[in-house]
Design a binder for these strands. Structure first.
Length: 283
DNA sequence: ATCGGGATTGCCT
DNA sequence: GGCAATCCCGATG
């Protein structure tokens, strides 16, 4: 137990150092890196004394059931390469699963297929971007299963903090205080702003697109396989009855970049968890 | 043609 | 913690 705590503390400390190091010099580092990345997305990079490889995740990764994919996303790194070659990176720390069919909260509930949600029915890995409240966007990735998709809710910024801050500040009041790192991508529409994900990315393939892709866990940032995943009810769908209570939101426990912490779910005392146990006991 | 609502955010008290 | 902003989409007539 003590060892686990010590390990977590060490990780958090080293991450803080990494963030400090990311500032003005990052643009230079990014442009160098973009040359390496021009044809192949797997590149070697040095992390202290060790050399790691960045691996782009392909079709096989996205071809899994919605809940499994939503959890598998945790710890993976979303990358956005902009026209000028700058690369923005964020570690996925919070997702939601929208199952389609029975899931009343899904845009594809009841198999409903429209112009807007067509991407949800396309092959696993297809990006679904839709506008919300007239002013914001949300980004999803289709999974296995008819009309099923994973909503990306929060990222931990890894690379391109300065650019992200600039993109996020664009629509805010002049003279507002600069955003903290934890405020850059802690929400589905915030991450779209920070990574410059536009509406026209809708229906693109995250497995093959040159401007946006997913990478395997960055060992320096941490592998989510050794972290606790909280399962909590989804956000902002209160009007959808029973389905609003199901634990289909997933996030890394204790991670400071998550949008909303659910203390009830973390105690394991909410009705959804009880439902889950009941279901498990019956099977 | 019109109307109601939304998988959110930021600013205000 | 409350609430306005803001507009697209889909349903309805």
């Amino acid at each position: 137990m003590y060892m686990i705590m010590a390990e977590r503390k060490r990780k958090l400390m080293s991450r803080k150092v990494d963030q400090k190091a990311n500032s003005e010099s990052e643009l230079v580092a990014v442009s160098k890196q973009h040359k390496l990345n021009e044809t192949v997305h797997s590149v070697y990079f040095s992390g202290g004394q060790t050399t790691y490889v960045r691996r782009r995740l392909g079709e096989d990764f996205f071809s899994q059931p919605c809940v499994a994919l939503a959890k598998a996303f945790l710890g993976k790194v979303l990358v956005r390469r902009r026209e000028d070659g700058t690369e923005l990176r964020g570690r996925v720390v919070e997702t939601e699963a929208y199952l389609g069919g029975e899931d009343k909260a899904s845009h594809s509930a009841g198999g409903k297929r429209t112009e807007r949600n067509t991407a949800m029915f396309m092959k696993p890995g297809t990006i679904y971007v839709y506008p919300i409240y007239g002013i914001y966007l949300c980004m999803n990735v289709s999974s296995q299963g008819d009309g099923a998709a994973v909503l990306l809710r929060s990222l931990e910024p890894l690379q391109g903090h300065a650019v992200m801050r600039q993109l996020r500040a664009a629509r805010r009041k002049d003279g507002a205080r600069p955003l903290k790192d934890k405020e850059l991508c802690n929400g589905p529409s915030k991450l779209c702003q920070a990574l410059d994900v536009p509406r026209h990315f809708d229906r693109r393939d995250l497995a093959s697109d040159p401007e946006v892709w997913l990478e395997d866990a960055d060992p320096a940032a941490g592998d989510a396989r050794h972290e606790v995943v909280v399962e909590a009810p989804r956000i902002g769908i209160e009007s959808h009855g029973e389905w609003a209570k199901k634990p289909l939101r997933f996030y890394l426990q204790g991670n400071a970049f998550v949008s909303v912490v659910d203390k009830v779910a973390e105690r394991g005392e909410n009705p959804s968890d009880l439902n889950c146990q009941t279901l498990c006991n019956h099977t």
